[in-house]
Design a protein around this nucleic acid. Structure first.
Lengths: 217, 217, 217, 217
DNA sequence: AATGAATGAGGATTCATTCAT
DNA sequence: AATGAATGAATCCTCATTCAT
């Protein structure tokens, strides 16, 4: 036959996923590898072969776990979003919010948690704020939804703060866009250059800016 | 093929640059066409052929005016940035800034000008805030520089306001990142969905937020 | 994993060949599944995974029973050819062929048997007349041989009829090609659209055409 | 830039199509090359690279003239069908058809023309009768239509002969399928092995078979 | 025997760029 | 200056086949 492919050529015998747990583990490993390379090179400049190499697999294998490059990227974004949410929820959830002071602290905690998260995981910030909104066609809608989710989380935080009188009743969406953009931009810049501040300092600054503004008093 | 060609019967209007001015004009026309298609489809989804068609030229001709797709995109970004700066400078430059009130107004004017500009030219916002940071490797540096320029402009605005006591002496870079991100994000969202506010309302909101914060008083 | 496994709770019925007979049975089941999918999608559009799924087996298992996709297809064609031959032989074999009338009936019976067979098993017609000759290189020779076998069967039928004076002594090969093509084409068309005739009517028509031609008398 | 491709490597400077006529000529040349390789290897076993090499072009260039492999193949089939029709029409068209003898001759001429055509162009027969009906999905419908056209041409020939009393009023579609299959099969076999007959002899045989049948008289 | 993860050759297609005219 | 045909590197994805378990 003309096209029978011979492939007894070199190549290390890859360890094989055997159990369901192993398979999930392998999936996670691919996602981790993909995160590294996508964060480093961006979506378009990254090839499936890059991901495969980073995951120490052959390209074909990626398709065993994900339907396409797009699907892989979407899964990655979903997972990053979940991780961010988990982190923030954990940071905010502790402690009651009965008086105004504790409520304000909850807000500050939430903001700080975001920066801490991205501080600890710069790749995540790159993915979420750089690539998320710039993919053409089909994938765009999904990623837009993810970004939207980020904004909505913030909107909820803001809304809650407003209901408790912690902040003014300005238009919630505008506030959310403002705070989201402000946070996202700072987080992104911090993946590129060191601004010399700790995550905590940045969070404090942001909360103070948002609450009291910059006008001298 | 002399300069005095009569409009031949054929469909598309014969276009031929005859003087230096014509050439510059043609360059501008390509840039305008590129802006349209890049804004609509994004950098990666746009082909040189798309640009050429939008400019009513053949693919090859683009290369007479620009060295590469990247170079074309860079030139476009430069031009967009200059346009934004011109617009803002014009809005701010008028009137002295002697007392605090007029200085605060200058700040508000600057912010408003930004929103007005992007309101009137949504494509510009798409390009500057969507594509600008997502190009792999080489071009990235240039575009980063452009975005940086945007931030620096804001930093200057902020710095000036600080020197005159209009706003607090918070770390200028953080402030610039905050305000830049906040503005950029809102501008970008407004290219996607209508939030129901006029450019002026948004600008007022932003200035108020930045100056006075959201804490009820 | 003993032979006396009880049907575990899980979804699909556990299948495990335990004896030689079981193995032969499994092989037959794969062939049957392959027939369905190959007939439906054609050789090239069918993947081993399709066959495996239709046979409720895993991909790898197919290779325990067949060396390759080609080998599987060849085995399938062989089996289809044998089935056709069996059916025709059974239809023709009955009854002596002593006088001209009974000989003519034998011919008619053979032709009718062919149409009946393909009528009852359209997948078989699709496989034999659609895919059989369109496989590149290696497999082609084998399949060509199968088709050749079909022609030779007809040639034998024709030859016998000629020897007994039932039909003229025209060049046997040409006659066989004619009748084979005529039968094959009609059979194939009938897998695609209903021409409104029964297998018997078609067979009668064919025999009459071949014997008496279409010239008005 | 990472992906800028350098291709100053070797390769003869291909002659360039300049005028519209040249372009049409190049298109024809590609079709001719495609005919050769498709006929030799079959649709599936032929790659675009094969076609390109046969046409002395690079693969990319094929796409300048045809949208896809399928589109190329369809264009090829269309052109082959047209060529066949032209040939047959030319052979039949000459001479009036007033008496029965000349009408019968017209029928014989048509059949003979078909065989002559395929005799002179075996690749055409291979394409039309081997590949035409075996392509999955989208292309199938188009090719089916082509084959259908062949049948309809014959149906018309038959119908005309019937109206003039040259042949019996048997069901036209069955007759067409019969004669079409008979002709197609013989034509195809003749591309594989030499049966020792000239196109004329074969045509005479076919016409005689169809008109008078094989029963000794 | 059966499974299904892993492999990688192969192929269609895209598109930036070049260059003869 | 402009054209658009030609080029071929690049890349996604498919799928037959292998093989450890």
């Amino acid at each position: 036959m003309a096209k029978t492919q011979t492939q007894e050529s070199g190549g290390r015998p890859l360890k094989r996923a055997v159990s369901d747990e192993d398979k999930r583990e392998r999936r996670r490993a691919i996602l981790a590898a993909a995160k590294r390379v996508f964060a480093e090179r961006g979506y378009h400049a990254t090839t499936i072969a890059d991901v495969a190499k980073a995951a120490d697999l052959s390209y074909g294998s990626i398709y065993w776990y994900f339907d396409s490059k797009e699907a892989l990227f979407q899964a990655l974004m979903d997972s990053e979003q979940r991780a961010l949410r988990r982190h923030v929820a954990a940071a905010v959830g502790e402690g009651g919010q009965d008086d105004e002071v504790s409520r304000r602290r909850a807000l500050a905690d939430g903001v700080r948690a975001i920066f801490e998260h991205f501080e600890a995981d710069k790749a995540s910030a790159k993915l979420l704020f750089r690539d998320a909104l710039t993919l053409g066609s089909g994938i765009e809608r999904h990623l837009y939804a993810i970004y939207e989710g980020f904004i909505e989380d913030i909107e909820r935080m803001i809304g809650s703060a407003q209901r408790h009188g912690v902040i003014l009743n300005a238009p919630p969406r505008l506030v959310a866009f403002s705070v989201g953009g402000l946070i996202g931009n700072i987080a992104q810049r911090r993946t590129l250059t060191d601004d010399g501040f700790s995550a905590e300092e940045v969070a404090d600054f942001v909360v103070k800016l948002v609450l009291d503004g910059l006008r001298p008093r």
